[in-house]
């Protein structure tokens, strides 16, 4: 909460601002910056793109200079040829298989986590009964349980979705529950003093106040969802980027595996940015305040 801003129309005479000596002016107020700063540092995205490009150049030249075999580390240009070993249609089949499992698992996770978080914070009985079990589930390495789940549920989409769900829902539950309890006490008292129904206290006060917490968890969980889908594909799948990476590695087709990895990273990034975008578009007030 800033304490100074626009002044009320009713408060007519504001005390005059003390005149600041010019010598103490902030350095950022300098009229001119170097060309490098104006073309490279200031525009968003330029500097990270240049860094990425530099890494590619160093990578490419190192592989050539030190004659690194492609099964140890393929050069970026060799990885690019890895894309050609599959048809575009096959690529999209793999991408869709992974994306589908990640998104379904993520969606179920949200649908379960939000009501569960509400139940955990409303009822001491539910909290005492369920919380230890949630901790046990979270403490179980999902990678270790994945083969068991596949055996129990068969080889379809269902076991992969379950694995994704197990890996994504805990951060969502904990973070949402924390957010639901972080509501200012005064607003809860206001709600009580109005004798409003409890569900409205949740929908109009507690849930909106938990939005920053929920989105923090949604961002973590979306990348976990991709991990969950890949882990499931490692265990048993006939399609998907995780399957592709494992299969091509076992065939020593490393450029293909690296290409699959590249697509996977890109997918994770896009999903993460999409969640950020939803928050920026629909809940701009929930973003951390910029300093200054």
């Amino acid at each position: 909460m800033t304490s100074q801003a626009t002044s009320a129309p009713s408060s007519s005479s504001a005390p005059p601002e003390p005149v600041r000596p010019a010598a103490t002016a902030a350095p950022s107020a300098r009229p001119t910056r170097s060309l490098f700063w104006r073309l490279v540092v200031r525009p968003p995205g330029v500097l990270p793109a240049l860094t990425f490009l530099a890494i590619l150049v160093i990578w490419e030249s190192s592989v050539a200079i030190f004659s690194i075999p492609s099964y140890v580390l393929p050069s970026p240009s060799r990885i690019a040829t890895g894309f050609d070993s599959l048809t575009t249609q096959r690529w999209f089949q793999h991408i869709w298989a992974t994306l589908q499992v990640a998104l379904i698992g993520y969606a179920i996770s949200i649908l379960v986590a939000l009501p569960l978080a509400i139940a955990l914070t409303r009822s001491e009985v539910v909290n005492k009964a369920l919380y230890p079990i949630l901790v046990v589930i979270q403490s179980t390495p999902v990678v270790a349980v994945a083969p068991i789940i596949i055996v129990v549920l068969g080889s379809g989409v269902a076991p992969r979705v379950v694995i994704t769900f197990l890996i994504t829902f805990f951060p969502l539950v904990v973070s949402t529950a924390t957010g639901l309890l972080a509501t200012p006490r005064e607003l809860i008292e206001l709600s009580k003093s109005l004798r409003a129904p409890v569900w409205r206290e949740i929908t109009q006060i507690r849930l909106p106040f938990a939005i920053p917490y929920i989105f923090a968890a949604l961002k973590i969980s979306i990348t976990l969802a991709v991990i969950g889908a890949v882990v499931a594909e490692f265990v048993a799948a006939e399609r998907g980027l995780g399957f592709l990476i494992q299969f091509s590695t076992s065939m020593f087709r490393l450029p293909e595996a690296w290409a699959g990895l590249g697509v996977l990273v890109l997918m994770s990034l896009i999903l993460f940015q999409s969640v950020s975008l939803v928050q920026r578009l629909f809940f701009p007030w929930s973003l951390p305040k910029k300093g200054g």
Partner: peptide, 11 residues
């Protein structure tokens, strides 16, 4: 009731 802090809804 008026509280110590304004506790408005930020959204």
């Amino acid at each position: 009731i008026v509280f110590q802090k304004p506790t408005l809804l930020p959204w």
